[in-house]
Amino acid sequence: MSTPEGDFGDNPYDLLAEDHDEGHRWAFGTGFTDPLEGVDTSVPDGLDPGALVRFCLALGDDALIYSHRLQQWVTRLPELEEETAVANIALDLLGQARLLLARAGGIVGQTEDQLAFFREEKEFRNVRLAEHADRDFAELVVRLLAFSTWRLALFERLAGAEGAPGTGDPVLAAIAAKGVNELAYHRDYAAGWVVRLGDGTALSHEKTQAALDTLWPLTGELFRPDPDAVAIAPDVTGASAAFDAVLDTVLATAGLDRPAAVPLAPVDGRAGRDGVHTEAMGYILAEFQSVARVYPDATW
C-alpha cells in the first residue's frame, strides 16, 4: 500500500471537480452535502416533532434572512476590516441556518435547499427584525447588537450552559452550543461599534440614537410568547431579562438612551413567526430565490 501523498496536487479544491462529471452545471461549492451527515437525527421520545420543526425553521429563517441582508452590505462598508467582519458574521449565520434547516428538513423529508428556495413568503418564520434594510452603518451595528444579543441569549439557553436544562433535542443543543461561540464574537463586534459611535462625535451619536429609535419597535416581537419554543426549551423565556441586561450595559457605556418606543404591532395578532412580514420580505425572496427557481435542476 503506497502512501497517497505524492498523488495530490497542491490544490485540494481540485478534488471537487472529480465527483461532478455527469453533466451537472458545476460551480464553486458544488456538491454540498447534508451538514448533519453522520449525526443521529432521530427525534427523542416525548418531544413534539411538529414544535421542533417549527422552532428550528424559525431560528433557521432568522439566520438565513439576516445573513442575506448582511451579505448585501459587502462591498459597501466603510473599511476593509468591516468588510471582512460583516462577511464573516453573515457566513457564520448562513452556517447556522443550514444546520437548522437541515434539522427541520430531516424530520419533514425536505432538503435545506428546498426549504430555503422553494417556500413562499408566508411560510418563512423569521422575525421582522431580520428582514429590515439598514439605511446606514449605525443601523447595521445597532441591529446586529440587538439581533446577536437576543440570539446569543436564546442559544445559551438551548445549549443548556451552566446547569440549565437546555433543550430536549440533542441535535438542536449541539447546533446552539456551536453558535454560542460565534454569536459572542458578533455581539462583541456590534457592541464595540455602538459604543464607539454613541460615544463618538455629535453626529455619530445623533445617527446612532436615531438608528436605535428606528429599530427599537422591531425588538418587541423577539419576546412574544412562542409555544413551540417553550415546548422545546422551557428556559427560553429567560432570554428577555438577559437581553435587557446586556443592552442596558452597552447603551449606558455608549451614552445612548434606551427608547421608550411602542413595539411594532402584529397584524391581526400575527407577526413574523406566523408568516406575516414587512414589505421588505418579498424583495429579499425575489432576489434570494430567483436563480434556484429559474434553474431548479442546477447543482450547487
Binding site: 485540494p12 478534488l15 471537487l16 456538491g31 457564520d92 449565520l93 452556517g95 443550514r98 447546533i175
Partner: peptide, 11 residues
Amino acid sequence: SGCPAMREIAA
C-alpha cells in the same frame, strides 16, 4: 458553523 472548507475536507 459556516466553515466552507468542510465539504473540501470531506472530499
